[in-house]
């Protein structure tokens, strides 16, 4: 039975033929919430222009880890990080770096679609305006370009001035991805981007991510192992705050080294 489930998983999209260069290097990262040691001594390479999936049961620290990569955990007063996350010769965890600039280069999409209660075009133009873009022409072109990249342009081009909250959940999530693309980031972090969506919208997002990985480095947290198997080039399995296993998705799913990885992907727990 367990064997059969394994066979259902297909690996059509994610055969890594050659090792891609490393864009982010995570070394000895520990994260604490007050006294709670949430992430323990994680070492992990993130390869350029690929999809890396972080999987594991609830509370395993995968989201916490993801939110550390663009310092969103700064919002939580009790959170504390140790170790280094190397990106472009800087340590992201260094308290002195410009967090605002970092977040322009490492964008993020959340579990709950969170478009701003403004018009569709305003959602995309807001970050650009803050970044100093004034020309109406450039703003318009960027809006069209971003919406085309996420396949939303044809659906919304006649109602760009309508409120973004009038879109469906799946459209809202694609708008949020488009918004993150507007600043032309290097890396996009996605925190369970499809878990609040219906299956059709989810598969649209998956297809979109496969397309986007040609231009961006993508790190995705997912509860859905099939999703990781379908789209990720690399997969990291977290359990109880530790990184248990990391490798190419196909290897990790078909031939895991650790017993707990094998137990988790075969559905024995989590």
């Amino acid at each position: 039975m367990i064997q059969m489930e394994k066979n259902i998983v297909s690996f059509t999209n994610n055969t890594v033929t050659k090792e891609l260069p490393i864009q982010i290097k995570v070394e000895n990262v520990n994260i604490f919430y007050g006294d709670n040691h949430a992430v323990k001594d994680v070492n992990l390479p993130i390869h350029e222009k690929s999809i890396t999936a972080l999987i594991g049961p609830s509370g395993c620290g995968k989201s916490t880890f993801l939110r550390t990569i663009n310092r969103m955990n700064d919002l939580i007063p009790s959170a504390r990080c140790e170790g280094t996350i190397g990106y472009k010769d800087v340590n992201i965890l260094n308290p002195k770096i410009d967090v605002v600039q970092l977040r322009k280069e490492i964008g993020m999409v959340f579990q709950q679609p969170n478009p701003f209660p403004k018009s569709i075009s305003e959602n995309i133009q807001l970050p650009l305006r803050f970044a100093g873009v004034r020309s109406k022409k450039i703003l318009k072109e960027a809006t069209e370009d971003c919406l085309k990249q996420v396949g939303l342009w044809d659906e919304v081009k006649d109602r760009l001035d309508r409120s973004a909250t009038s879109l469906s959940g799946g459209q809202q999530q694609r708008l949020c991805i488009a918004r993150a693309l507007a600043l032309k980031p290097d890396v996009i972090l996605l925190d369970e981007p499809t878990s609040a969506l219906d299956p059709v919208s989810s598969s649209k997002i998956e297809e979109l991510l496969l397309e986007l990985k040609n231009s961006y480095t993508i790190i995705i947290v997912t509860h859905n192992m099939q999703q990781a198997a379908r789209i990720a080039d690399y997969t990291a399995f977290f359990y109880q705050g530790e990184l248990i296993e990391f490798g190419q998705t196909r290897t990790l799913f078909t031939n895991p080294e650790k017993q707990s990885t094998s137990d988790y992907i075969s559905g024995r727990f989590g």
Binding site: M72, L75, Q112, N114, F116, L126, P127, A180
Partner: peptide
Amino acid sequence: SRHQKEGGLALGLTHWH
């Protein structure tokens, strides 16, 4: 919702903006 604030900050906006 907390998501609105996170959405803004994650886009590289400053807190005040």
